[in-house]
Design a protein around this nucleic acid. Structure first.
Lengths: 243, 243
DNA sequence: CTTTAATAACTGACCAGTCAGTCATCAGCA
DNA sequence: TGCTGATGACTGACTGGTCAGTTATTAAAG
């Protein structure tokens, strides 16, 4: 203790002068068009969660630095703590805010095609890709899969409020097709998971091996093959795939 | 669910178990009354990579502590550094050693069914599940997907030496089916990715949402639905005998 | 007795979270 | 219209804890 305080005292008591120990404000170049302190209370949370999502998806939760998230949002780390209590709270916000609105759009889509199961299923699957898979939200499934065991509470929320709801939407579409004799009799509970897998896989691909595989996975051709296989596998009698 | 007897049924003649569909859980139990300095130079690397694999898959690379890996292998952290230069080197070893042997088994399997494309494809897909998906190796795809961007070199290796080779195996099976008029004409390059997706998804599931979803995904029923859909989607003619 | 596998205490870098200070903004007043 | 004091959004240096990697020591094996 004594030694330590003495060292500090020596520094603190050193006479003012060119010792090089003072912290000098060499920040005399504010030649920016934008002010260094821009107050935008409303926009910050969105910008921060968007930045956090992209980095979490790219690197994983643990490997992502809060400084990087803040920098990507054009803000300092301290600001981040004005809006979120902790890194974990930020993660929760990313998941909670991210995907529920898109799911609600899917539920609206459901109402619009109640009477044509094949078209409905087609719309749901392709709609998922267009509204979620192909957008920034497409990284959420990868992120959530990777982190589910580290965040059981968030995983529970995501599973109940997102996956189970989406699953049920697709399940009802398949079931109504079976009921009307348009689709073959299948185990709807399981087939739903099988149907979603290739979509989730394609979305995950964009954030994993896409760079190793510039030509192998082409979303357009992949989706065509996928829908072709699915509808040939589901429809009763020989028909054109997908409607 | 109606008990439709599909042309394609699950093979029951696997050497591993009655159906080969059980999820295999292997645990290394520590032997008690072990001397504190047990010298087992030969066995250590395997034990360490096995422990590392299970923890990397469960928590991700960055969130896994080397102390935990060592503890699970019944060893101290220092010992780990006798066999691996760094945490990253350990990760590489996990991936490199883990899955190539299983792939070679798949390639042997290919030779055994050259003349029957439907049976061959069936063997390849179910064989993947039995040899990889249902074993401890099943976590590797999840791990590799999650960490691909953080380890581009390992990702390149994995992609070239594992995924591309496996993909080509399945592609040739599909192609030969198409050539012989057994399968419909499809885009084989893309369909291969579609075919593997549900298997990868099921394997990943075990290490992510399985605890949230005790009843939703049942490997047995899931695989039946999957194979049913795939072969109905691929085979020429409606209810003809597949295999 | 020598060799070396294995250990456990140690170190230094890194990073989540904090806090004293800075400055943009605007209401109130001249 | 222009000045000024109050407010609070924002900053970034700092701290304490954690963990990858090192090393001095111990003991098993030949």
């Amino acid at each position: 203790m004594g030694c330590r305080s003495r060292a500090i005292a020596l520094r603190a008591d050193s006479p003012a002068g060119p010792t090089g120990l003072e912290i000098v404000e060499s920040h005399t170049q504010p030649q920016e068009s934008r002010p260094r302190f821009a107050r935008r209370k409303e926009a910050r949370p969105q910008e921060l969660t968007a930045a956090a999502l992209s980095l979490f998806v790219e690197r994983g939760f643990a490997a992502t630095r809060l400084d990087e998230i803040a920098a990507r949002a054009g803000v300092s780390k301290g600001t981040l703590y004005l809006y979120f209590d902790s890194k974990e709270a930020l993660f929760e916000a990313v998941i909670r805010e991210g995907i529920v609105p898109a799911l609600e759009e899917g539920e609206a889509l459901f109402e619009r095609h109640r009477d044509d199961p094949a078209a409905l299923l087609h719309e749901l699957l392709l709609g998922w890709w267009q509204l979620i898979g192909a957008t920034d939200l497409g990284g959420i499934p990868k992120l959530m899969m990777a982190e589910a065991q580290n965040f059981p509470d968030v995983a529970k929320f995501y599973f109940d409020e997102v996956m189970a709801r989406g699953r049920e939407l697709v399940r009802k579409a398949v079931q109504s097709g079976v009921d009307r004799g348009i689709f073959r009799t299948v185990n709807t509970d399981q087939i739903v998971n099988v149907l979603m897998a290739p979509l989730l896989h394609l979305a995950t691909w964009r954030y994993s091996f896409a760079c190793c595989d510039p030509k192998g996975m082409q979303p357009q051709a992949y989706l065509e093959s996928y829908l072709d296989l699915v509808f040939n596998g589901l429809l009763v009698g020989r028909m054109e795939a997908g409607r």
